[in-house]
Structures are given as C-alpha cells and as structure tokens.
C-alpha cells in the first residue's frame, strides 16, 4: 500500500486505500507538532512554493507551517503583488518559478481545474489547495483525520453536510472520499445552493435541518460563499440562519456525542450559532490543528515520489 502519484489534485481520482494511507501517515505526524522542538530534518533542501491566486489565511499558513516543520524552504507567492497583474499567463508564471528548481507547488486558484492544468505542465509535485468549486483535498483529509480521531472509525458513520453545497469544494472533496470509505452522507441546504449535477451528489437530500441532523455522528456546516455567487441566492442572512443554521435546539436530533465541524472561516450567527461554535462538541479548532499534520503527510509522501 502506498501512494505513487506525482501530485495530489483531488480525492475523486484516489482509491480508498490511497486515502486511508495518507490518513495513516498523517496520524503519525501529529506527535511532532506536540514537541518542544517542532521540527524534523526530512525535507531539508527541498523548496516548496505556495502559489496562492486567491486569498487564504488558514490554508496558506497551515501549508507554510507544515513545510517548515519538515525543514523545507517554503516561499509564499500571492497573485496581487506579482507579475500576473502585469498579464503573465498562468503556465508562464509556473514555468518561471519551476526554473528556480522548486520541488513542490501548493496551488490555490479561483478556476476549477486550474490545478490539474498546472500539474500536467510541470515536473514539480503539485498539491491542490483549492481550485474554484472543484476540490480542496487536504481539507477533506484533515476533516477525515478529525472524524477518525473522535469517532475511532470512519466506515458506517452518518455525516450531514449542510449549507452551500454547490459552491463548496470542501463538500466535493469530502463527498468523493466519504463515498469511497463507506460513510453515509446526508446533504441539506437551500434549493438554490444544492447542485444540479448528480455525481457525486446522489446522496440523500434532507427535507429540513432536523431531518438532516437526525441520528448523525458528524455535522459539517459550510460557509456561505458570497464571493462565488453570481446572483442573489439568499434573501437575507437572518432567513438563512432560521432555516439552515444550526443551533442548540436543532442539534438535539443528532446523536448525543455528535461532533460539529466547519472548514472556516465561520459566519457566526449565520450557519452556526456562536454558542455551538464554542461548545464542547465543536471540533473546529481540532480540524485546524490536524490540518498541519495532514499537510505534512501529503508533502512528505509527494516528496518521495519526485
């Protein structure tokens, strides 16, 4: 069992074994983050370039920390202060940075499929850090790692994914992976935010929020992605909170030990009440913590394949 691909573009193409392998390795990296000296010399001399064509704090910082804890040199590139504003094409930008002997690119871009395009046009390993509404594989991996840690298993769990499914790359990556692993998925959100295409969304669509969370082990709330909406899909934040937001009362339908997840950033009081975001069932900060270990595992595995 191993992972022999050059890149991590999406979980759609991965087998169950490949996903479980990355998770297994990620668990082993957690210990390093608890040490006084949080650093191992494994990727010494490797150069990791974070190519972020879209804003990000969590993911970029997480990748940067992951690379640094493995002793790689991590360089951040943000599109606003670069030659892309002067009209350079995407592949030209990538080729130029590749010429400086970079080993791994971590790419975020607003266009779905752009990361795959880059991966096909460079010798360096490429990690997808979110491409448009397509995939965000490392987020799904850290979500699965967090679920496994709290529930001690993955197969057979009931998971509700609630919110803006159409615009969510987090939901897509999670759904692809969860289906392969054998997790039962329920989806819920406003009709305007439920995808029209079927695969991989041929899951149960809940009638209302209570129906969605009923008997669930895991409730994953998604952020309303206003930046990706072309037209007005919501009357108001208050109406969204009323019908699609999670609060203490609606949570009662779920299993007593259900965990609440959110990929961040949270719109407090909209999709998730403040009370729940900070309660003991909320594992939102565990997700962030596990993100570093998951990304360390991905960088380590890919660096062995280049």
């Amino acid at each position: 069992m191993a992972y022999v691909r050059k890149d991590l573009v999406g979980l759609k193409d991965l087998s169950k074994d490949e996903i479980l392998f990355i998770l297994d390795q990620a668990e082993k990296f957690k210990e390093i983050n608890q040490r006084d000296v949080k650093k191992v010399p494994t990727l010494k001399g490797k150069t990791i370039v974070n190519l972020f064509f879209e804003p990000s704090t969590r993911t970029r910082t997480s990748f940067e920390i992951a690379g640094k804890r493995l002793s790689a040199d991590t360089i951040n590139f943000t599109s606003s202060s670069s030659s892309t504003t002067k009209g350079e094409t995407l592949i030209d930008t990538v080729k130029n940075i590749e010429s400086m002997n970079s080993d791994i690119f971590v790419v975020r871009h607003a266009f779905s499929g752009s990361v795959k395009f880059i991966a096909e046009n460079t010798k360096a390993a490429v990690v997808n850090a979110g491409d448009g509404t397509n995939e965000h594989p490392t987020q799904a991996l850290l979500d699965l790692l967090t679920i496994k840690e709290h529930k001690k298993k993955l197969e057979g769990l009931n998971v509700a994914i609630i919110g803006d499914i159409t615009h969510s790359r987090v939901a897509r990556s999670n759904i692809w992976a969860m289906k392969k692993i054998g997790i039962n998925i329920k989806l819920f959100g406003p009709k305007t935010m439920l995808p029209k295409e079927t695969a991989p969304f041929d899951s149960y669509i809940a009638k209302n929020l209570e129906d969605a969370v009923e008997d669930c082990d895991v409730i994953m709330m998604l952020r309303i992605q206003k930046e990706r909406m072309s037209s007005v899909l919501l009357p108001s934040d208050r109406e969204y909170a009323k019908f699609f937001g999670l609060n203490k009362n609606k949570l009662k339908k779920a299993k007593k030990d259900a965990i609440i997840m959110h990929p961040g950033p949270i719109n407090r009081g909209v999709e998730l009440s403040s009370e729940l975001a900070d309660c003991t069932q909320s594992v939102i900060l565990d997700q962030v913590e596990n993100g570093v270990a998951a990304r360390m595992a991905v960088l380590y595995i890919l660096s062995n394949n280049i």
Binding site: A2, Y3, V4, Q25, E27, K28, F29, E31, A297, Y300, I301, N304
Partner: peptide, 9 residues
C-alpha cells in the same frame, strides 16, 4: 520501497 512512517511513541 516507500519509507512509511511508523510513528514515534
């Protein structure tokens, strides 16, 4: 062979 991490305990 792929150098699989076994974990330090």
């Amino acid at each position: 062979d792929f150098p699989q991490i076994l974990g330090t305990e």
